[in-house]
Amino acid sequence: MTAYLVRRLIGAVGVVFGVATLTFVMVFMMPGDAARMYAGPRAPEATVQRIREIWGLDQPLPVQYVRYIGRALQGDLGNSTRDNRPVLTVVVERLPATIQLALAGLFVELIIGVPLGILAALRPGSWVDQLATVISLIGISIPSFALGLVALYVFGFLIPIFPLGGYGTPLHLVLPALTLGIGGTAFYARVLRNNLLEVMGEDFIRTANAKGLSARAVLLRHTLRNALLPTVTLAALDLALLLGGTVVIEAVFGWPGVGLQAFQAIRNQDTPLIMGTVLFASVSVVGINLLVDLLYAALDPRVRLGGGGRS
């Protein structure tokens, strides 16, 4: 277990390092002059030059790179060019709203997806199964931001049940969470259905049936328990995906999370904030992936003894 842990940890650190490097390259490629942008178009050249010196933009690229990595390691992702506050502080401030939305979206996915998957697996080929497939295809085909706007129009404007965007009460959460989650719902249904069908073909299920257990007991106690594990892994990985997917949803609903902020940062051409957000999100994804892998290894000895881990 220790060897596996160490190997995965080293891998994760390598990826984080690579992500930071790639992000640096992107920042460097950014058109325009960040110092000039911050100082304003009418500022004297001397002021802009001074800002460049303070930010270290006058240094050769390798020096800038080493400094960037060094600072990033200490959690310093630079300052927002808009209000000069540290990027990390600004991102962390907005994080609770995004996590809340992502968790609510995940909840929507599971609460609809899991029953749908079970129903589909119990009668493969039936109309329930077909319906689950159709819903799943529509779910992954519809652009979430457009769905959000349509939802706002119908349930916020035509039939004013929910507020037209904003943040605060549980009512505010309903439409964004549904919009975010509905796409993934069907995905879970399909994955769970396939896992269930796979497990149903196993010997121990035949044994359970043969010894006279009720269909319900076989499903709940044996089949579902085994089919659910991959689904749980998926849920954790998906949470990372949802965190990225909240950008458009937050922009549509005016949800004051990290995503809305990234959206505003793009409008303001606030490079440090955009890149800080991207870096922060990617590191979170790597962290979540690592956690899931370790959890999986702890639960399933085959993973850590298998040698290669994930390919």
Binding site: V19, I266, N289
Partner: peptide
């Protein structure tokens, strides 16, 4: 594998956003 590990660590929309804001 390592390079794709890095690219896959970025949430796709965010990576696209980052690139989109960097390149005109």
């Amino acid at each position: 594998m390592r390079f794709t590990d890095i690219l896959l660590a970025y949430p796709a929309v965010l990576l696209a956003l980052g690139l989109g804001s960097v390149l005109r």
